[in-house]
């Protein structure tokens, strides 16, 4: 098999300023500049978009779903959550 479909780039899409970049998919492209263009064609064709990031698929470092201890929070951690505290005070700004 001597075909190439070119390298894979993961695509992150920002809908508007102030929003986070969100992973939306991937494109095949020869290099970073073409990857950005292909990402624009595929992921900003209809959706609003102000910024795109692309990163080579193999450069994304991932946690492993099969290592359960990594995200374990089994013991009581309510002291670091809002719900671990009484309801907020309802004071007026000024009497």
């Amino acid at each position: 098999m001597n075909d190439t479909q070119l390298p894979i780039w993961e695509v992150f899409h920002q809908e508007k300023r102030g929003a986070s970049h969100v992973h939306v998919g991937a494109v095949h492209a020869s290099d970073e500049e073409m990857a950005l263009q292909m990402a624009k064609e595929q992921f900003a064709r209809r959706q609003e978009c102000v910024s795109l990031w692309v990163v080579r698929e193999e450069h994304v470092v991932k946690t492993n779903y099969d290592v359960p201890f990594f995200f374990a929070r089994n013991t009581d951690k309510e002291y670091r959550e809002v719900y671990g505290f009484p309801a907020p005070l309802k004071g007026k700004h000024r009497e």
């Binding site: 479909q5 070119l6 095949h28 492209a29 263009q37 292909m38 064609e41 595929q42 064709r45």
Partner: peptide, 11 residues
């Protein structure tokens, strides 16, 4: 030549 280019050139 490439699916991505189908999209790009149609544009």
């Amino acid at each position: 030549p490439l699916i991505e280019e189908d999209i790009a050139f149609s544009n």
